[in-house]
Amino acid sequence: MWAIARTELKKVVQDKGLWFWTFILPVIFIVAFVAIFSGDENTSYKEVVTQIIPGYTIMFAFFIMISMVIAFVKDRDSGMVARTASTPLPIHHYFFGKWIPYMIIVLVQVAVLFGFGVAVYQLPLGDPFSLVLLSLALAFIATGWGMAMAVLVKTENMGIALTQVLALGGAMLGGLWMPVELMPEMVQNISKALPQYWALQGFKDVILSGAGVTDVWLNLLILMVAGAAGGVLALVSYPRFLRQSRN
């Protein structure tokens, strides 16, 4: 499992596109939107940064799905999936070996973007333990759904399109772009069905209200269950994915 994970990590670190999507573009968005909204007289500077930095961090965390789709489709079409299946490596080792590096990347992404927020915008962090757990849960759901998407889609383009829908649609409806309280009641109800909402509310509770693990347990549970659902769906769909592999 660790051999697969190490190799995958080496590959993705070399991928310049991933660096752009994961670190550069989110920083550009954060800088731009903090600049735009910090001029609003009705909103405090603290409210702006605690909305925008976690919000865009969550939105861009879901973009990891694009890299996952590309990596899996490439492996499937090059025959690497079938080749790996011919070795004694158990399927679940292959599976988690591919999954773990992307979780690490999302965790690094969260650390970098929050670190940027602290350094540049004096973003308060709150309880570090709760923050780490929420970051883990966010990495778990973004990559869990990424695993499902990567195994289920037929083409890279299909995966990229669906990721855009999930990441941007989820960001818009989940309150990542603007507080859900400002949205119509119907949209607020839809928000509660989206993991992005629960992730943001968790981060905001920890950062703004000083909440601890006991206060955000429901957020953590929802994110973990949704992530696990993605992982299970991917695992169940793996035999079909293997059949589609070349060789």
Binding site: G79, A82, S86, T87, R246, N247
Partner: peptide
């Protein structure tokens, strides 16, 4: 069993030694 597939199943962005290391670990 050692299986040599028709497709070239190698990690193109890695070195020959890295590829052999990966498969060595898998075996």
């Amino acid at each position: 069993i050692g299986y040599v597939p028709q497709e070239i199943c190698l990690e193109e962005t890695l070195t020959a030694r890295d590829n052999l290391t990966l498969f060595g670990h898998l075996y």
